[in-house]
Amino acid sequence: MEIKAIVDCKTVLGEGPLWDVAEQKIYWIDSLGDRIFRADENGKGVESWPVPQHIGSMALRRSGGAVLSLAQGFYLFDFETSKTQVIEEIAHKGPTVRMNDGKVDKKGRFVAGSMDTTEEAPLGLIYSLGTDRKVTKIDDNITVSNGPCWSPDQKIFYFADSRSRAIWAYDYDIETGAATNKRKFCDFGPEDGLPDGATVDAEGCVWSAGVYKSKIHRFDPSGKRIQVIDFPTVCVASVMFGGANLDRLYVTTMLRAPVPGVVETGPLAGSLFVIDGLGVKGLPEYRYGG
């Protein structure tokens, strides 16, 4: 196994690595630096685009461009003009709430959650943006929404409320987008970090960034922790498989922690990393259908 930094981008809050099979490109975002990045699989030819608000997540669209969860809601984005178009602004529960992590299901829905930026109050929700551009609510009472992803058969939806120190599992109806029967999938102890960005590999195992504790965790489908990778930066934020064979794990990191009491060290903080030699493959990401 080899861990290496491939883009010294110094993202304030690097999140949302997204490998696109069609383009053979890796995308990622700086949530607090308000920017989208793109590069080839080795981190070469970096491009970037500004966005007008803090950005929680993005997904590419089948018809071109991207869909974004910006702080105040859902938007479309045009890479050629760098312009955003509002789909729906969200009436958050308070001024400290913004949109955060999101991904697309097999039917083309964009599922994203919101978070309390003080990371103290359960003011967030999970939303589903349908291909008809209508927004529905999946769950509420979330403090810090993170790590949405699905089992390979799309029957289980995984979601982390970071401050609960747990990843949760729901039964997922791919036809309707409904998530039911919420139960705890796995716990994170004090030395594991908090569950942040996540992805599912081809074997159905969940990979989660253990932010603030320099860890990446792999859990089997029963929720048993089967692998822990020690990472060279404290604030490891999110993970995604990519590369030509979907066997490289891309990892985003933070230049500085957004919460008090956590100190990041080292010259590689905020870089985009890749891990090779894991012997595991990921799954292609879907594009938003709206």
Results as ranks from 00 to 15, higher is better:
Gln72Pro: 04
Gly64Gln: 00
Pro17Tyr: 05
Asp140Phe: 04
Glu23His: 05
Glu264Gly: 04
Val206His: 01
Lys10Cys: 09
Cys186Lys: 07
Gln227Lys: 15
Tyr75Gln: 02
Gly124Val: 05
Gly147Pro: 03
Ile55Tyr: 13
Thr199Val: 05
Gly43Thr: 05
Val67Leu: 00
Ser214His: 00
Thr11Asp: 10
Cys235Glu: 09
Tyr170Ala: 07
Thr81Ser: 14
Pro284Gln: 13
Cys235Met: 10
Ala166Cys: 12
Asn146Lys: 10
Val280Phe: 12
Leu194Gln: 13
Ser48Met: 14
Ile29Ala: 02
Asp192Glu: 15
Val211Ile: 15
Val144Leu: 14
Ala244Trp: 01
Asn181Ile: 07
Phe231His: 01
Met115Gln: 04
Ala198Trp: 00
Ala169Leu: 08
Gly65His: 06
Ile156His: 08
Ala66Asn: 03
Val46Leu: 05
Leu194Trp: 11
Ile6Cys: 03
Asp78Arg: 07
Leu76Val: 13
Leu278Trp: 11
Val234Ile: 14
Leu249Phe: 11
Lys44Cys: 12
Leu18His: 15
Val236Arg: 00
Tyr250Gln: 09
Tyr212Lys: 01
Phe79Thr: 06
Pro195Ala: 07
Asp8Gly: 03
Pro267Cys: 13
Val86Trp: 05
Asp139Val: 10
Val239Met: 00
Ala22Thr: 08
Asp220Gln: 04
Leu68Ala: 04
His54Met: 10
Ile216Val: 15
Asp101Arg: 12
Gln53Gly: 09
Gly43His: 06
Cys205Asn: 12
Pro258Lys: 04
Pro152Cys: 03
Gly147Met: 11
Arg61Lys: 15
Val259Trp: 00
Gln227Trp: 11
Glu88Ala: 13
Gly289Phe: 09
Pro232Asp: 01
Gly73Trp: 05
Val259Met: 05
Gly279Pro: 03
Gly243Ile: 06
Arg256Asp: 06
Glu2Thr: 09
Val7Ala: 10
Pro148Ile: 14
Pro50Ile: 08
Lys10Trp: 04
Asp101Ser: 13
Glu119Asp: 09
Asp116Asn: 13
Cys149Ser: 15
Lys134Val: 12
Thr143Ser: 07
Leu123Asp: 03
Tyr250Ile: 07
Leu129Ser: 01
Arg248Ile: 09
Lys83Cys: 12
Val206Tyr: 04
Asp196Ala: 02
Gly279Ala: 06
